[in-house]
Design a protein around this nucleic acid. Structure first.
Lengths: 339, 339
DNA sequence: CTGAAAGCGCTAACAG
DNA sequence: CTGTTAGCGCTTTCAG
């Protein structure tokens, strides 16, 4: 077994309390004593046991992160923002994939609480009453990242999804498009479905463009599903001349589905994506898309969580980050972006 | 504070040992007693404290994962394989980004050991003598995933990188290409540099194609750096007619760099990538690439780690997974792949 | 500035 | 089948 604080105390001929003090940087130790202890630590290759420390101090310096799918290009970017800030504040991260599955989410919430994490960062789909119950059942701070909750009961970091979608569709409508298609995730998804769809409809309304249900294609967030959706659009009597996609990955599917059928982008159809993942510049033509600052959402939400964990003052617990549209080459009439 | 095992014992009028037994599914408890305890647990909303359990049992059921960059499409896929299997075996994961930085890697190794993780999964660049020292300094099992170590001292899961690169380049050479370019990461990188480069050179040699240094472009793994590398190729007196890229992302850069200059793929230049990330089917033309089973490498390495942690028998501690080439449309003379 | 002592909440013998 | 009793390794008063 490896050395304990007792072994070090013996070796240095001091009490364990003193060893604890030097390990924790407590200034109330005479330099000479500190040195003796440091030598003993070195000699025994002593490493403090964080589990014992956690039990005694009730802090684990670990936070739980519940994320739908770390292999998604969107969430992995978010996760990086989270981890970077966590590291900066000396926290480690327990990462859990939920697939936006309610039972898994609740199970993970409980597991993380059992592990005594100091806080939880939650990314998910819908927040149900049951979620809320479990989240309340412990006093540890929880912040929602890129996850919408009606009641704003929990701290959160988001962009204004409805407004962002509105901006994208409004831009298309103002260019004269009267047939604007939308590729979306399930409408039950508060963010990628409902909020963005709401923005879409409102933009149509404000531009006096009639809403047409046949222009809406509900996909499952994958590239392939979006490719297939093109089939529906293309067989329409009255085809769309522009398409707004709820995510970049689906936008790529739309672009390639269109191109595979000989349509030209942006000449025949203009396309606008959402998120500005790295994918957006890795297609030809490069994708015009709504910028959602993924890394920042992760970073800011983790920072917010540290404030709760360290009992700092919180100015605003529901942060809304700015969004914007990045104009690239799947839309026309803009200065051509060079790659 | 939340309820402890004592509170439950009092409530159920049994001893804490009995509570511990029912919580841990020990069969030596009379059904009636079990029921009493379960009721008390329910009533008090008791949740076992995993930290205390970890201290007493010396098992934390969490494993540390050191990964270069979770936001990379390659590593995030690996991470998903790791997490899925970890979940299956009831382990949680502490995820840490290292950026392949030696000091960070060593620091993380120590932090994870302090946190008493039951095992560590390590993905990185070069394994130096210093790494080895720190890894040995504790008796917890460590397995390397997608990370090459000469001495095979530590258990590992990989594919045969040199052979895989050989296969790709051999295929190109056998098609008659005499000018085959290579886009690579730094040659110091054992996997993405050295091993793949070695395979490349050997394939040239065996096909009597002379090696030409001007055909090698050292990039930094990014899409943009690969786009730039095209400039070097294109200004060559004797341009390459095929390019082998050490990663898919760089292959996309090559493809687009070439296309942006009016070259046609695969007619003017054939391109072969490496990894078969999701990117490979998200380009036009779709990318011919070496399949590295990322998810499986993650899953298998985690499974291997569980065997060490649970003291199961290990047949082979250095696993080499099979690779293959997925023929798509950046190369010719193959059955055309439909999307 | 340093030491003694009481837990933190749980597991794991060991009795009975 | 159930209870008692030591710890696990560290933090944290409280004295001195």
């Amino acid at each position: 077994m490896s050395a304990t604080i007792y072994d070090v105390a013996d070796e240095a001929k001091v009490s364990m309390a003193t060893v604890s003090r030097v390990v924790n940087g407590n200034p109330n130790v005479k330099p000479a004593t500190r040195k003796k202890v440091l030598n003993a630590i070195e000699k025994l290759d002593y490493r403090p046991n964080a589990v014992a420390r956690g039990l005694a101090s009730k802090k684990t310096t670990t936070v739980g992160v519940i994320i739908p799918d770390i292999s998604s290009i969107f969430f992995s970017e978010l996760a990086r923002g989270i981890e970077d800030i966590a590291t900066m504040y000396k926290y480690n991260i327990i990462l859990c994939n939920s697939d936006k599955n309610k039972n898994k989410e609740i199970h993970l919430l409980n597991t993380l609480m059992e592990k005594q994490v100091d806080g939880i960062l939650f990314m998910g789909g819908e927040i149900t009453e049951e979620h809320v119950e479990h989240m309340r059942s412990s006093s540890i701070p929880i912040v929602l990242a890129a996850t919408y909750h009606e009641d704003a009961e929990f701290p959160s970091v988001n962009i204004d999804y409805a407004q962002a979608a509105f901006d994208a569709v409004d831009y298309l409508a103002k260019k004269g498009h009267a047939r604007i298609g939308m590729v979306t995730g399930t409408l039950e998804d508060p963010v990628n479905g409902y909020q963005k769809f709401k923005g879409y409809k409102q933009a149509l309304a404000e531009n006096n463009v009639p809403f047409d249900e046949s222009l809406i294609s509900v996909c499952d967030y994958t590239y392939d599903s979006a490719i297939e959706s093109v089939q529906d659009f293309v067989t329409l009597e009255n085809k769309p001349t522009a398409i707004f996609s709820a995510t970049d990955e689906m936008a790529l599917g739309v672009i390639h589905g269109l191109q595979d059928r000989g349509l030209r982008i942006p000449d025949d159809v203009e396309v606008v994506g959402f998120d500005n993942t790295r994918l957006a510049t890795m297609v030809r033509p490069t994708l015009t898309t709504v910028v959602q600052p993924m890394y920042d959402i992760g970073a800011v939400s983790m920072r917010l969580l540290t404030k709760f964990m360290d009992n700092e003052m919180i100015e605003e617990q529901n942060v809304v980050l700015p969004h914007q549209i990045e104009y690239r080459n799947t839309t026309t009439h803009q200065e051509i972006v060079k790659e």
